[in-house]
Design a protein around this nucleic acid. Structure first.
Lengths: 107, 107
DNA sequence: CGATTATATAACACTATTGTTATATAACCG
DNA sequence: CGGTTATATAACAATAGTGTTATATAATCG
């Protein structure tokens, strides 16, 4: 589960989430990703490195350009881990705890 | 979307994910959560504060104890945001990009 | 080839995160 | 009331993350 560290950590940054949101519209080069932000190109390049390291994007080489696009692997891992929480939240145990907690001020 | 920062950031730490996994089994007090880790009580208390701030857990007061349990809010938010990525990954655009990239070495 | 364009990396400053120990608060027990 | 138990907070050190500027690399264009 070491990759979950990288994946969640990558998603914790709003700039990186914005980059992913942009890539959800389709492939983009580094300079295309720099343009909408008030950040320098090296800053974006490093964000991309983080996203790639986390398995959230992949890059191919096309001449001097490196177009990026979304990769499915990390999202799948995250979904699987969150599934554990979702299942627990759907469990009656927690509902009962909630009910008991809510009852307290009444009685 | 400011809360996504806190939620993803909270999930980026393996200790905090382990705490959540433990809470998926049911409510636990701070000392019960300290026990399985090689960390001090103040360290766990701060992790719990982070998880609470991110909306991933809630705590109630029961005498001198503060039992924690999972909260659904942040998980829902995260699911919704990830849904955007999932939908994009299911899109043909990205499939086509992938196909074109894969074709390149052949021709 | 030399200039330009696209991207990466190094070095540095600043801030945030995480852990520790020591201490505060507050409920409980006898 | 006084001691114990449960938890929180403060102060500090060590480390990691993010941004910047300056510079390196490498493909492209004339």
């Amino acid at each position: 589960m070491a990759n979950l560290d990288a994946a969640f950590s990558a998603l914790a940054d709003p700039t990186r989430r914005a980059i992913l949101a942009r890539l959800a519209l389709g492939e983009a080069t580094v300079m295309e990703l720099v343009e909408p932000f008030e950040l320098t190109q090296p800053a974006i390049s490093r964000h991309l490195k983080v996203l790639e390291g986390a398995g959230l994007i992949v890059r191919r080489i096309e001449g001097t350009k490196r177009p990026c696009r979304l990769a499915p692997t990390a999202v799948t891992e995250i979904d699987q881990w969150l599934g554990m929480l979702r299942r627990a939240l759907e469990t009656n145990y927690d509902r009962l705890d909630g009910v008991l907690a809510a009852m307290k001020p009444e009685t």
